[in-house]
Design a protein around this nucleic acid. Structure first.
Lengths: 243, 243
DNA sequence: ACCCGACAGGTTGTTTTACCAAGTTTGAGC
DNA sequence: GCTCAAACTTGGTAAAACAACCTGTCGGGT
């Protein structure tokens, strides 16, 4: 009983072509062999070849143009670029992984913006956990997490101790909620006196404020994360393909 | 000579099934009709049905399980949220589509940041095209495009006239370059006196500055787009799934 | 000599028919 | 009640045909 099952033919073809592109046999910009040539070389049928080429196109390795052929684009550039979304790290990594200091944990009346992102009434109350994250011994980020009160009950978020697991993992196991996607808003503003003091930054330097509204698959808001970054020391970087 | 070409059958099937899922005919969690049932109902062949269902699965509408069937997951949460990347619109849409005013077009010595993103020597020269984009009769964005000099030669970008096609299309047809992806940096700073004047904004409001380095498939830089937004009037919004 | 259209041959895109393999459920027969 | 075969499901492969599109070549005309 051989446990290793052979992959489908079209998947084997995908791998073979990827290897040739990476090895330079098919350099970027060149024309790939036509379907008919691939059929002959690999002794497979046309649907198999087309299935393999469709995968390669959807993954960004090649481009196809009706009437002309298929062009090599090279290894998809986005493969190794992991999105470095601020706030996402806070949701997945334990607080004990990054040095920092808990500055607030308790029920508050959130700002209108946060209340709106949580889809709660303007003067209602929510749970806030705020943490000053340090890097190289200096404070660098002020991270705030707002939750509906009922989501915070029975969790370790209300304690003053650093979390030993990520917020996402904690809420999933304790409350059974499923994070699905984040709606992110980025804006800039001048810091308040308190924020400037906490972050150890000049008062005339703007702040980058990133709001992340965490939602479940149906779009219902679960939490809001705000990350405040002094603009003179940090910036956001991201990479994405052009359609 | 009917200009409206009919979409392929499998695409029609995709739309029909999407409408039924949205209408609740196929509620989330339920079992979709089997391939055979869909073949009979829509009078198409099995590969056509399979192609449509493959698209739906890749887009996250349904789940499939060999031997059991296909389950409805519901409208994918990210479907309607199109990434609203600033700068991307400038690259794809004709300048004549948006009201605005060309404020600069010529060779300059770019800032260190732009030179670095273009991977050119610090004191070299590049072509700059800068446009003040208006909305509701007020200036709202200052969009700048830097190109290596050799990429600007022989294009309509050097003229003072508004472009009648997108920058990407223009450069692709004239110079044969292929845009592949963008590396984006977001930062905030105070406006210069000239920027504040051009944008009609107070001098004490910060600017959101978005740098987009356009690259080809091999990572070679092709152009840099900078979008300046007054932070009191605009912010960036985006949505993305959590892995 | 030059230009332009028709045409042939190549390419990918879409659809159909057919068959086999593999996983799941059901029910008939023991 | 248990076993196992039949009937369902989706996954994969093969062979064929037509359509749409691009690019040359070969004309004929100017």
């Amino acid at each position: 009983m051989s446990l290793e099952s052979v992959p489908p033919k079209y998947a084997q073809l995908v791998q073979a072509l990827q290897r040739r592109i990476e090895a330079g046999t098919y350099p970027p910009g060149s024309l790939l062999p036509s379907e008919h040539q691939l059929i002959k070389e690999f002794s497979v049928s046309r649907p198999t070849v087309v299935a393999a080429l469709r995968v390669l196109r959807e993954q960004g390795w090649i481009d196809s143009q009706q009437g002309k052929g298929r062009f090599v684009r090279g290894r998809p550039a986005m493969a190794s670029m992991e999105s470095n979304r601020p706030g996402q790290a806070y949701l997945t990594d334990p607080e004990t992984d990054t040095p920092g200091e808990l500055v607030e944990a308790g029920a508050v009346t959130p700002s209108n913006r946060v209340a709106s992102l949580l889809e709660m009434p303007p003067k209602g109350r929510a749970f806030l956990r705020r943490r000053l994250v340090a890097g190289d011994g200096e404070p660098t980020e002020l991270v705030s997490l707002w939750l509906p009160l009922e989501l915070s009950e029975g969790t370790d978020l209300t304690s003053g101790e650093p979390l030993r697991e990520g917020v996402r993992e904690h809420l999933t196991s304790r409350k059974g909620v499923r994070f699905d996607h984040i709606v992110e808003q980025i804006t800039a503003r001048m810091p308040t006196a308190q924020e400037a003091k906490q972050l150890g930054m000049p008062k005339n330097v703007p702040l980058l404020a990133v709001f992340g509204a965490v939602r479940d698959a149906s779009g219902h808001p679960l939490a809001v994360v705000e990350v405040l970054l002094p603009a003179d020391r940090h910036e956001l970087e991201d990479a994405y393909p052009i359609a």
